[in-house]
Nucleic acid binder design. Structure first.
Length: 480
RNA sequence: GGCGGGGUAGCCAAGUGGUAAGGCAGGGCUCUGCAAAAGCCCCAUCCGUCGGUUCGAUUCCGACCCUCGCCUCCA
Protein backbone atom coordinates (compact mmCIF):
# COMPACT_ATOMS: atom_id res chain seq x y z
CA UNK A 1 0.00 0.00 0.00
CA UNK A 2 1.28 3.40 -0.94
CA UNK A 3 0.30 6.91 -0.03
CA UNK A 4 -3.39 7.74 -0.10
CA UNK A 5 -4.71 11.29 0.14
CA UNK A 6 -8.07 12.96 0.25
CA UNK A 7 -8.81 14.92 -2.92
CA UNK A 8 -11.26 17.81 -2.67
CA UNK A 9 -12.13 17.38 -6.36
CA UNK A 10 -13.63 13.96 -5.74
CA UNK A 11 -14.31 14.32 -2.03
CA UNK A 12 -12.70 10.98 -1.42
CA UNK A 13 -9.43 9.39 -0.44
CA UNK A 14 -7.50 7.97 -3.36
CA UNK A 15 -4.04 6.66 -4.22
CA UNK A 16 -1.62 9.47 -4.81
CA UNK A 17 0.12 8.98 -8.14
CA UNK A 18 2.17 11.89 -9.45
CA UNK A 19 2.25 12.80 -13.14
CA UNK A 20 5.94 12.00 -13.51
CA UNK A 21 7.19 9.89 -10.60
CA UNK A 22 9.30 10.27 -8.59
CA UNK A 23 8.90 14.01 -9.13
CA UNK A 24 6.08 15.75 -7.28
CA UNK A 25 5.07 19.31 -8.03
CA UNK A 26 3.34 20.98 -5.11
CA UNK A 27 1.91 24.46 -4.68
CA UNK A 28 0.60 25.94 -1.47
CA UNK A 29 -1.17 29.29 -1.29
CA UNK A 30 1.02 31.46 0.88
CA UNK A 31 0.40 34.51 3.01
CA UNK A 32 -0.71 38.00 2.15
CA UNK A 33 2.05 39.97 3.80
CA UNK A 34 0.31 42.84 5.54
CA UNK A 35 0.83 41.73 9.15
CA UNK A 36 2.30 38.92 11.25
CA UNK A 37 0.84 35.52 10.58
CA UNK A 38 -1.36 34.02 13.29
CA UNK A 39 -1.48 30.50 14.57
CA UNK A 40 -4.37 29.66 12.27
CA UNK A 41 -2.39 30.65 9.19
CA UNK A 42 0.47 28.51 10.38
CA UNK A 43 -1.68 25.45 10.83
CA UNK A 44 -1.97 25.41 7.05
CA UNK A 45 1.72 26.05 6.46
CA UNK A 46 2.85 23.43 8.96
CA UNK A 47 0.43 21.05 7.27
CA UNK A 48 2.00 21.84 3.89
CA UNK A 49 5.40 21.17 5.42
CA UNK A 50 4.16 17.83 6.73
CA UNK A 51 2.94 16.86 3.27
CA UNK A 52 6.24 17.85 1.71
CA UNK A 53 8.31 16.03 4.32
CA UNK A 54 6.24 12.89 4.14
CA UNK A 55 6.50 12.84 0.35
CA UNK A 56 10.28 13.17 0.66
CA UNK A 57 10.33 10.44 3.32
CA UNK A 58 8.43 8.21 0.88
CA UNK A 59 11.08 8.75 -1.77
CA UNK A 60 9.48 11.44 -3.90
CA UNK A 61 11.46 14.40 -5.21
CA UNK A 62 9.32 17.33 -4.27
CA UNK A 63 9.31 20.79 -5.76
CA UNK A 64 7.49 22.96 -3.27
CA UNK A 65 6.23 26.40 -4.29
CA UNK A 66 4.61 28.92 -1.99
CA UNK A 67 3.60 32.32 -3.22
CA UNK A 68 3.86 35.59 -1.37
CA UNK A 69 0.92 37.87 -2.10
CA UNK A 70 2.49 41.30 -1.93
CA UNK A 71 -0.15 43.45 -3.58
CA UNK A 72 -3.65 43.50 -2.19
CA UNK A 73 -6.27 45.81 -0.69
CA UNK A 74 -5.13 45.57 2.92
CA UNK A 75 -1.51 46.12 1.91
CA UNK A 76 -2.42 49.17 -0.14
CA UNK A 77 -4.41 50.62 2.73
CA UNK A 78 -1.56 50.11 5.18
CA UNK A 79 1.06 51.74 2.99
CA UNK A 80 -1.32 54.58 2.23
CA UNK A 81 -1.83 55.15 5.95
CA UNK A 82 1.84 54.90 6.86
CA UNK A 83 3.41 56.38 3.74
CA UNK A 84 5.76 53.47 3.23
CA UNK A 85 7.03 52.01 -0.02
CA UNK A 86 5.25 48.84 -1.09
CA UNK A 87 8.42 46.78 -1.24
CA UNK A 88 9.70 48.01 2.14
CA UNK A 89 6.41 47.23 3.80
CA UNK A 90 5.84 43.81 2.26
CA UNK A 91 9.52 42.93 2.53
CA UNK A 92 9.40 43.36 6.28
CA UNK A 93 6.39 41.10 6.76
CA UNK A 94 7.74 38.58 4.28
CA UNK A 95 10.94 38.34 6.33
CA UNK A 96 8.90 37.95 9.51
CA UNK A 97 6.84 35.21 7.89
CA UNK A 98 9.93 33.29 6.84
CA UNK A 99 11.34 33.61 10.35
CA UNK A 100 8.15 32.17 11.78
CA UNK A 101 8.29 29.28 9.32
CA UNK A 102 11.82 28.53 10.52
CA UNK A 103 10.78 28.72 14.15
CA UNK A 104 8.14 26.09 13.41
CA UNK A 105 10.73 23.87 11.71
CA UNK A 106 9.13 24.24 8.31
CA UNK A 107 11.50 23.69 5.41
CA UNK A 108 11.74 26.71 3.19
CA UNK A 109 9.77 26.16 -0.02
CA UNK A 110 12.01 25.72 -3.07
CA UNK A 111 10.40 28.75 -4.67
CA UNK A 112 8.79 31.74 -2.96
CA UNK A 113 7.47 33.79 -5.87
CA UNK A 114 6.19 37.27 -5.19
CA UNK A 115 3.07 38.32 -7.05
CA UNK A 116 4.67 41.59 -8.11
CA UNK A 117 7.42 39.63 -9.89
CA UNK A 118 4.91 37.73 -12.01
CA UNK A 119 2.78 40.48 -13.48
CA UNK A 120 3.90 39.49 -17.00
CA UNK A 121 2.57 35.96 -16.62
CA UNK A 122 -0.72 37.28 -15.31
CA UNK A 123 -1.04 39.62 -18.29
CA UNK A 124 -0.35 36.71 -20.63
CA UNK A 125 -3.08 34.64 -18.97
CA UNK A 126 -5.57 37.49 -19.11
CA UNK A 127 -4.72 38.04 -22.77
CA UNK A 128 -5.43 34.40 -23.54
CA UNK A 129 -8.72 34.62 -21.66
CA UNK A 130 -9.63 37.75 -23.66
CA UNK A 131 -8.64 36.00 -26.90
CA UNK A 132 -10.85 33.05 -26.06
CA UNK A 133 -13.77 35.33 -25.25
CA UNK A 134 -13.93 34.37 -21.57
CA UNK A 135 -12.77 37.70 -20.15
CA UNK A 136 -14.21 41.13 -20.85
CA UNK A 137 -13.35 44.71 -20.09
CA UNK A 138 -16.00 46.53 -18.10
CA UNK A 139 -16.90 50.25 -18.23
CA UNK A 140 -14.78 50.88 -15.10
CA UNK A 141 -11.67 49.75 -17.02
CA UNK A 142 -11.26 46.54 -15.06
CA UNK A 143 -11.13 43.15 -16.70
CA UNK A 144 -13.50 40.47 -15.42
CA UNK A 145 -13.81 36.75 -15.88
CA UNK A 146 -17.15 35.64 -17.25
CA UNK A 147 -18.26 32.43 -15.63
CA UNK A 148 -21.09 32.06 -18.09
CA UNK A 149 -18.80 32.23 -21.12
CA UNK A 150 -16.28 30.02 -19.41
CA UNK A 151 -18.83 27.26 -18.99
CA UNK A 152 -19.51 27.37 -22.71
CA UNK A 153 -15.81 26.91 -23.55
CA UNK A 154 -13.91 23.69 -24.11
CA UNK A 155 -10.97 23.16 -21.80
CA UNK A 156 -9.78 20.70 -24.41
CA UNK A 157 -11.52 19.28 -27.47
CA UNK A 158 -14.73 17.57 -26.48
CA UNK A 159 -14.58 18.58 -22.83
CA UNK A 160 -16.48 21.58 -21.52
CA UNK A 161 -15.15 23.69 -18.70
CA UNK A 162 -16.89 23.20 -15.39
CA UNK A 163 -17.38 25.69 -12.60
CA UNK A 164 -18.06 24.61 -9.03
CA UNK A 165 -16.05 21.41 -8.91
CA UNK A 166 -14.47 21.98 -5.54
CA UNK A 167 -17.49 22.97 -3.52
CA UNK A 168 -20.40 21.28 -5.21
CA UNK A 169 -22.38 24.41 -5.74
CA UNK A 170 -25.23 25.08 -8.09
CA UNK A 171 -24.00 28.09 -9.98
CA UNK A 172 -27.47 29.13 -11.09
CA UNK A 173 -28.91 28.90 -7.63
CA UNK A 174 -26.78 31.05 -5.39
CA UNK A 175 -27.97 33.56 -2.92
CA UNK A 176 -25.85 36.69 -2.70
CA UNK A 177 -24.75 37.64 0.77
CA UNK A 178 -25.61 41.00 2.24
CA UNK A 179 -22.28 42.54 1.32
CA UNK A 180 -22.37 41.37 -2.27
CA UNK A 181 -25.95 42.39 -2.73
CA UNK A 182 -25.31 45.92 -1.55
CA UNK A 183 -22.08 46.49 -3.47
CA UNK A 184 -22.16 48.09 -6.85
CA UNK A 185 -20.45 46.46 -9.76
CA UNK A 186 -19.74 47.03 -13.40
CA UNK A 187 -19.71 43.29 -13.93
CA UNK A 188 -22.02 41.54 -16.38
CA UNK A 189 -22.82 38.97 -13.77
CA UNK A 190 -22.52 39.16 -10.03
CA UNK A 191 -20.49 35.95 -9.88
CA UNK A 192 -17.81 37.22 -12.24
CA UNK A 193 -14.53 38.13 -10.63
CA UNK A 194 -11.76 40.60 -11.37
CA UNK A 195 -8.70 39.56 -13.33
CA UNK A 196 -7.33 43.06 -13.62
CA UNK A 197 -8.39 45.99 -11.45
CA UNK A 198 -8.27 49.40 -13.04
CA UNK A 199 -6.14 51.95 -11.20
CA UNK A 200 -8.00 54.15 -8.74
CA UNK A 201 -6.72 57.14 -6.76
CA UNK A 202 -6.42 55.12 -3.55
CA UNK A 203 -3.87 52.86 -5.24
CA UNK A 204 -1.34 55.69 -5.15
CA UNK A 205 1.78 54.78 -7.07
CA UNK A 206 1.05 51.07 -7.00
CA UNK A 207 0.08 50.18 -10.55
CA UNK A 208 1.31 48.39 -13.65
CA UNK A 209 0.78 49.07 -17.34
CA UNK A 210 -1.40 46.61 -19.23
CA UNK A 211 -3.15 46.38 -22.59
CA UNK A 212 -6.27 47.49 -20.71
CA UNK A 213 -4.72 50.44 -18.99
CA UNK A 214 -2.98 50.99 -15.68
CA UNK A 215 -4.01 48.81 -12.79
CA UNK A 216 -3.14 45.82 -10.68
CA UNK A 217 -3.93 42.13 -10.81
CA UNK A 218 -6.85 40.40 -9.17
CA UNK A 219 -6.02 37.98 -6.42
CA UNK A 220 -6.88 34.67 -8.06
CA UNK A 221 -4.85 35.28 -11.20
CA UNK A 222 -1.67 35.55 -9.14
CA UNK A 223 -1.73 31.94 -8.08
CA UNK A 224 -2.61 30.69 -11.55
CA UNK A 225 0.30 32.57 -13.07
CA UNK A 226 2.87 31.71 -10.43
CA UNK A 227 2.02 28.05 -10.08
CA UNK A 228 2.01 27.39 -13.82
CA UNK A 229 5.18 29.42 -14.35
CA UNK A 230 7.12 27.36 -11.82
CA UNK A 231 5.45 23.94 -12.00
CA UNK A 232 4.03 23.78 -15.50
CA UNK A 233 0.48 24.03 -16.78
CA UNK A 234 -0.53 20.81 -15.02
CA UNK A 235 0.89 19.80 -11.70
CA UNK A 236 0.33 17.33 -8.90
CA UNK A 237 -0.70 18.97 -5.66
CA UNK A 238 -2.31 22.23 -4.67
CA UNK A 239 -2.92 22.97 -1.00
CA UNK A 240 -4.42 25.71 1.08
CA UNK A 241 -6.81 26.51 3.89
CA UNK A 242 -10.35 25.24 3.54
CA UNK A 243 -11.73 28.73 3.13
CA UNK A 244 -9.75 29.09 -0.08
CA UNK A 245 -11.54 26.24 -1.83
CA UNK A 246 -14.21 28.70 -2.80
CA UNK A 247 -13.90 31.09 -4.43
CA UNK A 248 -10.12 31.32 -4.67
CA UNK A 249 -9.24 27.84 -5.86
CA UNK A 250 -12.36 27.45 -7.92
CA UNK A 251 -11.44 30.64 -9.72
CA UNK A 252 -7.85 29.50 -10.16
CA UNK A 253 -9.13 26.40 -11.90
CA UNK A 254 -11.43 28.49 -14.04
CA UNK A 255 -8.72 30.91 -15.14
CA UNK A 256 -6.14 28.25 -15.72
CA UNK A 257 -8.31 25.77 -17.56
CA UNK A 258 -10.20 28.50 -19.37
CA UNK A 259 -6.93 29.91 -20.68
CA UNK A 260 -5.73 26.48 -21.70
CA UNK A 261 -2.65 26.97 -19.56
CA UNK A 262 0.12 29.52 -19.42
CA UNK A 263 1.74 27.69 -22.34
CA UNK A 264 -1.32 25.99 -23.75
CA UNK A 265 -0.41 22.79 -21.92
CA UNK A 266 -3.81 22.15 -20.40
CA UNK A 267 -5.51 22.42 -23.75
CA UNK A 268 -2.94 20.37 -25.65
CA UNK A 269 -2.08 17.88 -22.92
CA UNK A 270 -5.75 17.34 -22.03
CA UNK A 271 -4.83 17.36 -18.41
CA UNK A 272 -6.47 19.34 -15.65
CA UNK A 273 -4.70 22.28 -14.04
CA UNK A 274 -4.21 20.38 -10.76
CA UNK A 275 -4.47 16.65 -10.18
CA UNK A 276 -5.00 16.69 -6.48
CA UNK A 277 -6.36 19.35 -4.10
CA UNK A 278 -5.74 19.23 -0.36
CA UNK A 279 -7.46 21.58 2.06
CA UNK A 280 -6.59 22.07 5.70
CA UNK A 281 -9.39 22.81 8.14
CA UNK A 282 -9.33 25.90 10.29
CA UNK A 283 -8.60 25.97 13.95
CA UNK A 284 -10.46 27.39 16.90
CA UNK A 285 -8.63 28.91 19.83
CA UNK A 286 -9.97 28.02 23.27
CA UNK A 287 -13.07 26.69 21.54
CA UNK A 288 -13.87 29.95 19.80
CA UNK A 289 -13.13 31.49 16.49
CA UNK A 290 -9.96 33.50 16.84
CA UNK A 291 -10.60 37.19 17.29
CA UNK A 292 -8.72 40.08 18.77
CA UNK A 293 -11.68 41.15 20.90
CA UNK A 294 -11.90 37.73 22.55
CA UNK A 295 -8.21 37.86 23.41
CA UNK A 296 -7.62 34.50 21.76
CA UNK A 297 -5.75 35.81 18.76
CA UNK A 298 -2.20 34.50 18.78
CA UNK A 299 0.69 35.08 16.44
CA UNK A 300 3.67 32.76 16.59
CA UNK A 301 5.53 35.61 18.22
CA UNK A 302 2.90 35.91 20.94
CA UNK A 303 3.37 32.25 21.82
CA UNK A 304 7.15 32.51 21.85
CA UNK A 305 6.71 35.47 24.18
CA UNK A 306 4.78 33.21 26.53
CA UNK A 307 7.82 30.98 26.69
CA UNK A 308 6.77 28.23 24.31
CA UNK A 309 9.17 26.80 21.76
CA UNK A 310 8.46 26.51 18.06
CA UNK A 311 8.81 22.71 18.25
CA UNK A 312 6.11 22.60 20.93
CA UNK A 313 3.75 24.70 18.83
CA UNK A 314 4.54 22.50 15.85
CA UNK A 315 3.74 19.37 17.77
CA UNK A 316 0.39 20.71 18.89
CA UNK A 317 -0.49 21.79 15.36
CA UNK A 318 0.39 18.30 14.14
CA UNK A 319 -1.58 16.48 16.81
CA UNK A 320 -4.89 16.37 14.94
CA UNK A 321 -5.94 15.34 11.47
CA UNK A 322 -5.69 18.14 8.92
CA UNK A 323 -9.29 17.86 7.75
CA UNK A 324 -10.74 18.27 11.23
CA UNK A 325 -11.29 21.59 12.88
CA UNK A 326 -8.70 21.73 15.61
CA UNK A 327 -9.13 23.37 18.98
CA UNK A 328 -5.90 25.13 19.88
CA UNK A 329 -5.57 25.90 23.58
CA UNK A 330 -2.79 27.09 25.85
CA UNK A 331 -3.46 24.09 28.09
CA UNK A 332 -2.99 21.92 25.03
CA UNK A 333 0.28 23.69 24.34
CA UNK A 334 1.43 22.89 27.90
CA UNK A 335 0.51 19.29 27.20
CA UNK A 336 2.47 19.31 23.97
CA UNK A 337 5.46 20.63 25.88
CA UNK A 338 5.32 17.71 28.32
CA UNK A 339 4.83 15.23 25.49
CA UNK A 340 7.81 16.60 23.56
CA UNK A 341 9.92 16.39 26.71
CA UNK A 342 8.94 12.75 27.09
CA UNK A 343 10.27 12.01 23.61
CA UNK A 344 13.39 14.08 24.31
CA UNK A 345 14.17 12.08 27.46
CA UNK A 346 13.91 8.82 25.62
CA UNK A 347 15.94 9.93 22.62
CA UNK A 348 18.62 11.45 24.86
CA UNK A 349 19.01 8.18 26.72
CA UNK A 350 19.38 6.32 23.44
CA UNK A 351 22.02 8.76 22.25
CA UNK A 352 24.06 8.13 25.39
CA UNK A 353 24.10 4.43 24.55
CA UNK A 354 25.11 4.75 20.94
CA UNK A 355 28.73 4.18 19.98
CA UNK A 356 28.38 4.32 16.23
CA UNK A 357 25.62 5.22 13.81
CA UNK A 358 23.37 2.54 12.39
CA UNK A 359 22.34 2.00 8.80
CA UNK A 360 19.56 -0.43 9.69
CA UNK A 361 16.75 1.51 11.39
CA UNK A 362 14.44 -0.58 13.57
CA UNK A 363 11.83 -1.71 11.06
CA UNK A 364 8.72 -2.23 13.16
CA UNK A 365 8.17 1.28 14.41
CA UNK A 366 9.11 2.70 11.04
CA UNK A 367 6.63 0.55 9.19
CA UNK A 368 3.76 1.34 11.56
CA UNK A 369 4.59 5.03 11.30
CA UNK A 370 4.68 4.89 7.50
CA UNK A 371 1.36 3.09 7.30
CA UNK A 372 -0.26 5.66 9.57
CA UNK A 373 0.87 8.64 7.50
CA UNK A 374 0.18 6.88 4.22
CA UNK A 375 -3.42 6.72 5.36
CA UNK A 376 -4.27 10.29 4.40
CA UNK A 377 -1.72 11.64 6.89
CA UNK A 378 -3.22 10.13 10.00
CA UNK A 379 -0.93 11.94 12.40
CA UNK A 380 -2.84 10.90 15.51
CA UNK A 381 -2.21 7.28 14.70
CA UNK A 382 1.41 8.07 13.87
CA UNK A 383 1.92 9.76 17.25
CA UNK A 384 0.39 6.72 18.92
CA UNK A 385 3.04 4.63 17.15
CA UNK A 386 5.74 6.98 18.39
CA UNK A 387 4.54 6.92 22.00
CA UNK A 388 4.11 3.17 22.02
CA UNK A 389 7.71 2.96 20.86
CA UNK A 390 8.83 5.46 23.53
CA UNK A 391 7.19 3.43 26.28
CA UNK A 392 8.69 0.15 25.09
CA UNK A 393 12.10 1.75 24.65
CA UNK A 394 11.99 3.28 28.12
CA UNK A 395 10.99 -0.07 29.57
CA UNK A 396 13.86 -1.83 27.81
CA UNK A 397 16.29 0.90 28.85
CA UNK A 398 15.25 0.59 32.49
CA UNK A 399 15.59 -3.20 32.27
CA UNK A 400 19.08 -2.89 30.82
CA UNK A 401 18.02 -4.60 27.61
CA UNK A 402 19.28 -1.93 25.22
CA UNK A 403 22.81 -2.40 23.92
CA UNK A 404 24.68 0.01 21.65
CA UNK A 405 23.47 -1.75 18.55
CA UNK A 406 19.80 -1.63 19.43
CA UNK A 407 20.13 1.98 20.57
CA UNK A 408 21.68 2.91 17.23
CA UNK A 409 18.96 1.14 15.26
CA UNK A 410 16.20 2.75 17.29
CA UNK A 411 17.80 6.13 16.96
CA UNK A 412 18.12 5.71 13.20
CA UNK A 413 14.40 4.93 13.05
CA UNK A 414 13.60 7.95 15.17
CA UNK A 415 15.72 10.20 12.98
CA UNK A 416 13.70 9.11 9.96
CA UNK A 417 10.42 9.68 11.79
CA UNK A 418 11.68 13.07 12.85
CA UNK A 419 12.54 13.92 9.26
CA UNK A 420 8.74 14.11 8.90
CA UNK A 421 7.52 15.37 12.26
CA UNK A 422 10.58 17.59 12.61
CA UNK A 423 10.57 18.24 16.33
CA UNK A 424 14.34 18.36 16.14
CA UNK A 425 16.64 17.95 19.09
CA UNK A 426 16.11 19.62 22.42
CA UNK A 427 18.23 22.75 22.35
CA UNK A 428 21.15 22.32 24.73
CA UNK A 429 21.72 25.65 26.38
CA UNK A 430 25.05 26.50 27.93
CA UNK A 431 24.79 26.10 31.65
CA UNK A 432 25.70 29.45 33.23
CA UNK A 433 28.76 29.43 35.50
CA UNK A 434 26.65 30.52 38.46
CA UNK A 435 24.30 27.53 38.04
CA UNK A 436 27.24 25.22 37.55
CA UNK A 437 28.83 26.47 40.80
CA UNK A 438 25.60 25.98 42.73
CA UNK A 439 25.22 22.50 41.29
CA UNK A 440 28.73 21.57 42.31
CA UNK A 441 28.13 22.90 45.80
CA UNK A 442 24.93 20.89 45.98
CA UNK A 443 26.69 17.75 44.87
CA UNK A 444 29.37 18.26 47.53
CA UNK A 445 26.74 18.78 50.24
CA UNK A 446 24.89 15.71 49.04
CA UNK A 447 28.02 13.57 49.12
CA UNK A 448 28.61 14.81 52.65
CA UNK A 449 25.04 13.68 53.38
CA UNK A 450 24.08 17.23 54.34
CA UNK A 451 20.66 16.88 52.72
CA UNK A 452 19.22 20.06 54.17
CA UNK A 453 21.95 22.10 52.54
CA UNK A 454 21.75 20.06 49.35
CA UNK A 455 17.99 20.58 49.01
CA UNK A 456 18.31 24.26 49.75
CA UNK A 457 20.83 24.62 46.94
CA UNK A 458 18.60 22.68 44.59
CA UNK A 459 15.76 25.07 45.42
CA UNK A 460 18.04 28.01 44.62
CA UNK A 461 18.96 26.44 41.30
CA UNK A 462 15.28 25.81 40.58
CA UNK A 463 14.47 29.43 41.32
CA UNK A 464 17.03 30.40 38.69
CA UNK A 465 15.27 28.27 36.11
CA UNK A 466 17.20 25.01 36.16
CA UNK A 467 16.44 21.48 37.30
CA UNK A 468 18.93 19.12 38.87
CA UNK A 469 18.41 15.45 38.15
CA UNK A 470 20.46 12.79 39.90
CA UNK A 471 21.30 10.00 37.51
CA UNK A 472 23.56 6.93 37.86
CA UNK A 473 26.20 8.97 36.05
CA UNK A 474 25.96 11.89 38.45
CA UNK A 475 23.84 15.04 38.54
CA UNK A 476 22.42 16.44 35.32
CA UNK A 477 21.23 19.99 34.70
CA UNK A 478 18.22 20.80 32.54
CA UNK A 479 16.43 24.06 31.88
CA UNK A 480 13.14 24.06 33.77
C1' G B 1 -32.19 29.19 2.06
C1' G B 2 -27.98 26.03 -0.37
C1' C B 3 -23.50 23.12 0.44
C1' G B 4 -20.01 20.79 3.72
C1' G B 5 -17.63 19.35 8.55
C1' G B 6 -18.30 17.90 13.77
C1' G B 7 -20.57 15.93 18.53
C1' U B 8 -15.86 9.64 21.72
C1' A B 9 -13.28 10.10 29.33
C1' G B 10 -11.60 16.33 33.22
C1' C B 11 -9.01 18.28 28.46
C1' C B 12 -6.88 17.17 23.36
C1' A B 13 -7.71 13.29 19.95
C1' A B 14 -7.67 8.25 16.78
C1' G B 15 -10.79 4.27 15.49
C1' U B 16 -13.74 -0.28 14.10
C1' G B 17 -20.22 -4.31 12.12
C1' G B 18 -18.01 -8.07 17.35
C1' U B 19 -17.51 -4.92 22.09
C1' A B 20 -13.07 1.70 22.82
C1' A B 21 -5.41 3.90 20.16
C1' G B 22 -2.27 7.70 21.91
C1' G B 23 -1.09 12.36 24.60
C1' C B 24 -2.05 15.78 28.77
C1' A B 25 -4.16 16.09 33.63
C1' G B 26 -5.43 12.90 38.06
C1' G B 27 -4.82 8.54 41.75
C1' G B 28 -1.78 4.31 43.69
C1' C B 29 2.89 1.60 43.72
C1' U B 30 8.34 0.74 42.47
C1' C B 31 13.01 3.21 42.22
C1' U B 32 15.30 7.64 45.12
C1' G B 33 18.26 10.39 51.34
C1' C B 34 14.27 13.43 49.19
C1' A B 35 13.23 14.65 44.33
C1' A B 36 13.37 14.36 39.01
C1' A B 37 13.25 10.94 35.07
C1' A B 38 11.48 6.11 34.12
C1' G B 39 8.46 1.63 34.84
C1' C B 40 3.96 -0.93 36.53
C1' C B 41 -1.28 -0.46 37.82
C1' C B 42 -5.98 2.47 37.90
C1' C B 43 -8.89 6.27 35.27
C1' A B 44 -15.27 5.90 28.95
C1' U B 45 -20.06 -0.98 30.72
C1' C B 46 -19.58 3.26 26.73
C1' C B 47 -18.91 6.82 21.91
C1' G B 48 -25.15 13.87 21.24
C1' U B 49 -30.75 12.04 21.60
C1' C B 50 -34.54 8.75 19.88
C1' G B 51 -35.91 5.01 16.60
C1' G B 52 -34.62 1.13 12.76
C1' U B 53 -31.52 -2.85 10.25
C1' U B 54 -28.55 -6.93 12.47
C1' C B 55 -27.09 -12.70 16.20
C1' G B 56 -24.49 -8.17 17.52
C1' A B 57 -23.85 -0.80 16.19
C1' U B 58 -20.09 3.85 18.91
C1' U B 59 -19.32 2.13 13.81
C1' C B 60 -24.91 1.14 8.71
C1' C B 61 -29.97 3.72 7.88
C1' G B 62 -33.73 7.49 9.42
C1' A B 63 -35.43 11.48 12.41
C1' C B 64 -34.17 15.09 15.86
C1' C B 65 -30.96 18.33 19.02
C1' C B 66 -26.45 21.02 19.39
C1' U B 67 -22.11 23.10 17.13
C1' C B 68 -18.64 24.91 13.38
C1' G B 69 -17.34 26.45 8.39
C1' C B 70 -18.28 28.20 3.24
C1' C B 71 -21.95 30.79 -0.10
C1' U B 72 -17.33 35.91 -4.31
C1' C B 73 -10.62 38.32 -2.62
C1' C B 74 -10.54 35.14 5.21
C1' A B 75 -5.24 29.90 6.28
Amino acid sequence: MGLRLHNTLTRSVADFIPLTPPQVSMYCCGPTVYDYGHIGNFRTFVFADLVRRHLAFRGFQVTHVMNITDVEDKILRRIRETGQELRDFTGRYTAAFLEDLTVLHCLSPHHLPRATDHIDGMLRLITRLMDRGIAYRAPDGSVYFSIERYRATERWPGCLCQYGQLVNLQVDDQRPTERVATDEYDKDNIADFALWKARVPDDGEVFWESPWGQGRPGWHIECSAMSMALLGDSFDLHLGGEDLAFPHHEDEIAQSEGSGGLNGGIHEGRRPFVQHWLHAAHLLVEGKKMSKSLGNFFTVRDLLGKGFAGREIRMLLLSAHYRETFNFTLAGLEGARTAVARIDECVDKLREKVTKASTTPSPNVLQAFTEALDDDLNVSRAWAVVFDWVRETNRALAAGEVDARRAANDLAAWDLIDSVFALGARPIGEVPAQIMALAEARDAAKKARDFAQSDSLRAQIRALGWLVEDTPKGPKLKPA
